[in-house]
Design a protein around this nucleic acid. Structure first.
Lengths: 226, 226
DNA sequence: TTACCAAGATTGTTGAACAATCTTGAAGTT
DNA sequence: AACTTCAAGATTGTTCAACAATCTTGGTAA
């Protein structure tokens, strides 16, 4: 059995409301945590035994995850953890560069939202201080998710969540994990300050430049740009 | 057998690459066409017999459609065609009011895109001339889809497609089908002209007002606003 | 080496079975 | 008449076993 699957069965699986959804959640978590790296083949027999569910139920979970693009299904070949490439990175940033600045520009800010963002910025600063790359990455994702949530739209929140999940896959696929995030801690702080002071247009424009730079940096690192 | 299901079996169903996906496509089509109106219960036994597939395969299709919010799954109760209400309408317009103007503002226009949009506007005018409400509705959706596609993002195209599918459900749920679209034919024309002449900011602002008005009109008609 | 091919493994789909839950309708009570 | 109770029937949730279709593997022959 794959080491990454150890412990799933141990979790005990009393009857669940929707076993298929539960299985999907388990796999989503393992993939998001990097225990099942991009490209990993998810064998039906091995997984159904490890999780203690039937092949049919497992396949239902696969259908859910394929719909989320967390997993890629190749007919008669099997299911694999998605392995985003350069084109996927470009698509990720096309989406982010559109919905994030739009939410900043046109969203309305609920009371407390800015304070919550400042708290996230502080969390990022703390992570930076103690050299926690994972902490900075988490805080960064959290902040940008908060930006999109200014739109007030659950669908856009869901899209952003999907995009960020794909970002995590990109990071998991990288051999070396350089520090992409420390540069952005203070830029995020400025962004929040601009929103607080009502400089929406400036914030949106700055955010678009920010995302352009981040995309470029990422593409360079994965070798898509010399 | 439900009348709406007649003819599905007749279509003949030679072995399909993914039977589950094929079934999902069939149902999606029937729902989009209004043959299976919002709220309709999709019985597993009846449908699996009508389509000539097993219950397991049908359930896989249900999982796909539930992921697209085309269908609502209620545990131990069954699967129903989604019946969007006032809150769903508001959510639809939150999304549209964000991604459409953003695509207009920041998308880059591929060669031929504006001519294609003008062709769509002409189609809408022709539909208006011959009093075809359905024709105007189709052309209107097509145009707004084209606006979003200026973003160049497949994910946003998919989101817009999902939102427009939900809009069709809203229309199918209405008892009377008043003419929502004729007012917008020329406004769409103006919008395209503004984009063509580089007035992106004006077009985006106008589009946001346009969508505000359309949302209000729709909410009034379904009785959510007096 | 390359091409071919058969055996084995894996996925795609089905049908039947059973438990859990919901729906229905009849009976009885207020 | 309206309201509860309850049992029978129907429907969904999940599993299992089987088989066809396809892919992978390893060996053989040119």
């Amino acid at each position: 059995m794959n080491a990454a699957l150890q412990g799933i069965a141990d979790a005990g699986h009393a009857t669940h409301a929707h076993t298929g959804a539960w299985v999907a959640a388990q796999l989503r978590q393992r993939i998001s945590d990097g225990l099942l790296p991009p490209g990993t083949k998810l064998s039906e027999q091995a997984l159904s035994e490890a999780l203690g569910v039937s092949r049919n139920t497992l396949r239902e979970a696969f259908t859910v995850l394929a719909g989320e693009s967390v997993v890629q299904r190749i007919p008669n070949r099997g299911v694999f953890v998605a392995a985003p490439g350069a084109d996927d990175v470009r698509e990720i940033y096309r989406v982010r560069r559109l919905i994030e600045p739009a939410a900043v520009l046109w969203g309305d800010v609920p009371v407390g939202a800015l304070d919550a963002m400042d708290a996230i910025v502080d969390k990022a600063r703390a992570a930076l201080a103690e050299g926690s790359v994972a902490g900075m990455a988490d805080a960064n994702q959290e902040l940008h998710k908060a930006l999109v949530s200014l739109s007030g739209s659950a669908s856009l929140d869901a899209l952003m969540e999907k995009v960020l999940a794909e970002m995590r896959l990109v990071f998991h696929a990288m051999a070396t994990t350089p520090d992409f995030h420390s540069h952005y801690v203070e830029r995020n702080a400025v962004l929040v300050a601009q929103i607080r002071s009502g400089q929406r247009e400036e914030a949106a424009a700055e955010l678009r430049r920010y995302l352009d730079g981040a995309e470029h940096e990422l593409l360079v690192h994965i070798g898509a740009i010399p």
